[in-house]
Amino acid sequence: MEAHSIEFKDVWKVFGSNRRYDLTCIQDGRVSKADLLERYGCVVAVAGVSFKVEPGEIFCVMGLSGSGKSTLVRHVNRLIDPTAGQIVIGGENISKKSENEMRELRAKSIGMVFQNMALLPHRTVRDNVALSLELRNIPAKQRHDIAEEKLALVHLSGWGDRYPDELSGGMKQRVGLARAMAADPAILLMDEPFSALDPLIRRELQDQFRELSMKLRKTTVFITHDLDEAVRLGHRIGVMKDGKMLQIGSPDEIITKPRDPYVEKFVEGSSRLKLLTAESVMAPLAEYSLTAPANELVGARRLALDANLKELATVLNQSSNGPVVVSDREGKDVGVVTTAFLLRGIEERA
């Protein structure tokens, strides 16, 4: 399925059954949050959020618990309806869709992974993965074949007959991921999928997810409270606090140029060295060849643009500190890294 964009247009969500408050008063700040809670018993969960997730992009929404990030992501499949504002998926305003159309959209185009996995304990792994297909009445044989295929995708072939209870936490969440992808949806919603796992497994799953999403290119909204995770996985990151989107930017921007004191505090402890890539320290090939001896690059090792500090250091050591050529995704050589360039890059970020 081709990727869709997701656009939030000034989305507001106020929780509470009391309808007597005036939303415009909240929106222009005449009624404070404390007042709203005291006088009307209502809570603002999302306060005027606007942003667009491009097709195929992984957008990480980061924030502490209670910042409204989980509420926000549930607007995409309308498990929660916005109080005001619009959500536009692939150019279509989904607030206008009927309950039936919405169900269709959820089953076909939106996969969701939950923090607590939320697998059905009375069903086998295979039947869990095939859930969205079963709900659409796809014949058993066909949906089981698809389920097996998706299980292979998350390295769980042969576990289809087991029950969720027999699986470890990491495996359960892989089942959750396979279930979300069973219908081959255009959009993936990840609600803190790896937060409940221990650090090693989390890391492993992050790697697997990164690999998968590179292959599948699904528009993804990824909720997390872990900055490292957001940096590792996200093309862009949005930082949320008290229902507001404070800053949106690439991982590098968020960490090196925080625009808000809260974001600054959030990224303070994080090492910028993580963001060092071959691309950010290399010299363009043309520029380098002007000054270098002609045969220097013959037989030099190759690295990808997104090679990280460790990979750079390893390869540089292996090629006895000689220059390393950086090539882009198509395999075209675009730049050169030497030990001196790497050290300069580290100096800038330390």
């Binding site: 499949n77 498990l79 169900r103 269709e104 959209l105 959820r106 089953a107 076909k108 939106i110 969701m112 939950f114 607590n116 939320a118 697998l119 059905l120 859930l131 969205s132 709900l135 659409r136 279930r179 919603l189």
Partner: peptide, 17 residues
């Protein structure tokens, strides 16, 4: 569990299902 109900709805279940 509430999360199971939520997951069912997220994958497009009708009330009946």
């Amino acid at each position: 569990p509430e999360e199971v109900v939520e997951a069912m709805r997220a994958f497009g279940a009708t009330n009946h299902q």
